[in-house]
C-alpha cells in the first residue's frame, strides 16, 4: 500500500488531548491506497496505533468500486471495533487489544464511505475514517448529454 502524510494545519488537532479532548477525525491522519490484485479484488490494511485514537490511514482510497479485502490491526492497548460499510449490511469486527482481523467489503460506486469504532466515544475521539471510492458511474447509466463543466 502506498501512503503519504496529510499535514495537520493546527498543532494539537492531530493528537489526543492537546487542542481538543480527542483528535479531530480524519484531519491530520494519513492517506492510503488500496492495491488491486490479479483477481481484480482490492486489498488494503488499516491499523489503530498506540494511544493515537486514529485509524491509519485515516483516508483509504479505492481506485474504483468493487470488492475490498481489508486487514484491520489494533496496535492500541485498549479494545476497539470496526463498523464498516458494505452492500448488504454493515460489517462488524471486534478488535481487542493487540489483535488482527479481516473484512470483506463491497462498495459499488464513487463517493465517500465512513467507518468507525462504535464503542464508548471512540467516534467522537477520533476513530472515524473514510473510504474514498474514485471513478465514474458506468457509461450506460450516465445522462445522454454533452460533457458538462465540473467545479
Amino acid at each position: 500500500m502506498n501512503d503519504m502524510h496529510a499535514a495537520a494545519e493546527l498543532p494539537g488537532l492531530d493528537t489526543p488531548n492537546r487542542a481538543t479532548l480527542g483528535r479531530l477525525p480524519v484531519h491530520g491522519g494519513r492517506l492510503g491506497y488500496a492495491e488491486e490484485g490479479p483477481d481484480g479484488r482490492l486489498r488494503a490494511r488499516v491499523r489503530i496505533p498506540l494511544d493515537e485514537m486514529v485509524w491509519d490511514p485515516a483516508i483509504l482510497v479505492m481506485p474504483h468500486g468493487g470488492d475490498l479485502e481489508l486487514e484491520l490491526v489494533n496496535d492500541d492497548q485498549n479494545t476497539h471495533c470496526a463498523l464498516l460499510p458494505s452492500n448488504g449490511d454493515h460489517q462488524f469486527l471486534w478488535l481487542p487489544n493487540h489483535s488482527r482481523g479481516t473484512a470483506s467489503l463491497n462498495l459499488d460506486g464513487p463517493g465517500c464511505y465512513w467507518f468507525s469504532s462504535i464503542i464508548g466515544n471512540d467516534e467522537g475521539q477520533g476513530l472515524i475514517a473514510a473510504i474514498v471510492v474514485m471513478g465514474e458511474t458506468p457509461p450506460e447509466a450516465r445522462l445522454d448529454r454533452p460533457a458538462q463543466p465540473r467545479p
Binding site: L72, N74, A82, L84, G88, D89, H90, Q91, F92, L93, W94, L95, P96, N97, H98, S99, R100, G101, T102, A103, S104
Partner: peptide, 8 residues
C-alpha cells in the same frame, strides 16, 4: 490475537 473475520 486473531480477531477473525467481520460479520454482518
Amino acid at each position: 490475537v486473531d480477531a477473525g473475520h467481520a460479520v454482518r
